[in-house]
Design a protein around this nucleic acid. Structure first.
Lengths: 219, 219
DNA sequence: CACTCAATGTGGACACTGTTCACATCGAGA
DNA sequence: TCTCGATGTGAACAGTGTCCACATTGAGTG
């Protein structure tokens, strides 16, 4: 119906078309908005056609979620790639970590629907089998791991502090992103959110790296 | 129908009964499971009766969410109250912050349905008016603020580091809780999650307080 | 005491969703 | 040329939120 191809009984690549339409729906309405009937309707196909490509509605949402994760990873990569090249290696590796965090938060704020969808979790009866961590590891998380490893190599992070650092960083940044989208922060003016985000990211880095020693208050 | 009261046309406190049933539903199925028809059916009343007490399904879920927040706050209070009394005030104030974090995470893991419900956000057409932060501030967050203020009083946290500290702490703990419930961590054995939680909380505290100075790696 | 009437609960209907069953149509390969 | 698996269709069912008109109640008023 669209483009040059004449409308035929067989669609060509319906799976791809449904995922794309799902992305459009998720963008404004989150995972709840990606509905089978709406997606098939937009593509110009009967509702049941979707069942030839996805077991469930949930299966479709998962496919869309995977794309959303990729979009998030792209956003991070872009921002990290723009790191100034004139920094000493040690500072550069820290700056890259900072950028991972900012990009993560910026993506959540700019595309809340996709962000929410990327974290959609609902086991669709099919995942009864044991799922290892490797199967599920998401692209953005892998980027964070690499960044932290690079910090160790650059001497910015003591090797002894490396374990668990990914969880501390991810938790802080993900938590703020969630709060900025769903929580009380969501009504704050953008400038305020920017300041909070900066404080959170800096605090997370301090917590992982180890901080400038505070002057202990003598009571 | 239940208890001693004979079944009458007018239900004594239907609003209360619906919220209670909503809590039961949310406990196992999250906010999506609290449905008007199911709740009214369980209470033994026609579906439309709910509309005399709630504008929307969303309004009911919000009421349930409020209760869930209170449950979370209770869990935190209980754990903080059990702080050993024989610590010096400074250490005690830090220990209390640690306990806020652990209680938050423990609640999310023990009652994932309620935890998810507590953070349910969906503006039900009614919230067109400007909502200030004070209106929306949730009980658990207030507890965190008080704990941090107490740390300043006890000399455990430099006054200059107090601003924004609540966001850094909340972000880290909330983010980990979310990941532990929805993210890749959810399939890990409980002992592993415990260790990760401890690392995240400690890192958050370090990030806020300021850490023991790391030995800078000399390349 | 009888009566009114606002509050509360009911029944029926509509639009929308996911999902299943039997059937229709295509197109690649024998 | 013909078959047959892959793909798309139609009709149907159960379940949901929500609106409408109507029924019932009980507290307060004359």
């Amino acid at each position: 119906m669209t483009s040059s191809a004449v409308r035929t009984y067989h669609h060509g690549d319906l799976r791809r078309a449904l995922i794309d339409e799902g992305l459009t729906l998720a963008r404004t309405g989150g995972p709840a908005a990606v509905t089978l009937r709406e997606a098939t309707r937009a593509v110009g196909v009967s509702p049941n056609a979707a069942y030839r490509h996805f077991a469930d509605r949930v299966a479709l949402v998962h496919a869309v979620a995977h794309e959303a994760q990729r979009a998030l990873a792209d956003a991070i990569l872009t921002r990290v790639a723009a790191t100034p090249g004139d920094l000493p290696p040690r500072d550069a590796s820290i700056e890259r970590l900072r950028r991972v965090g900012f990009a993560y938060i910026a993506f959540a704020r700019a595309e809340p629907g996709w962000f929410e969808t990327a974290f959609f979790t609902q086991d669709s009866e099919a995942s009864a089998g044991i799922v290892t961590l490797d199967d599920e590891i998401v692209a953005p998380f892998r980027l964070l791991m690499e960044t932290l490893d690079a910090m160790v190599d650059a001497g910015a992070l003591a090797a002894g502090r490396r374990p668990f650092a990914e969880w501390a960083c991810w938790s802080a940044v993900h938590g703020f992103a969630d709060i900025a989208v769903h929580g009380p922060v969501r009504w704050q003016p953008a400038a305020v959110v920017d300041a909070l985000a900066a404080a959170v990211v800096e605090s997370a880095i301090t917590g992982v790296i180890g901080a400038p020693a505070p002057a202990p208050a003598t009571s």
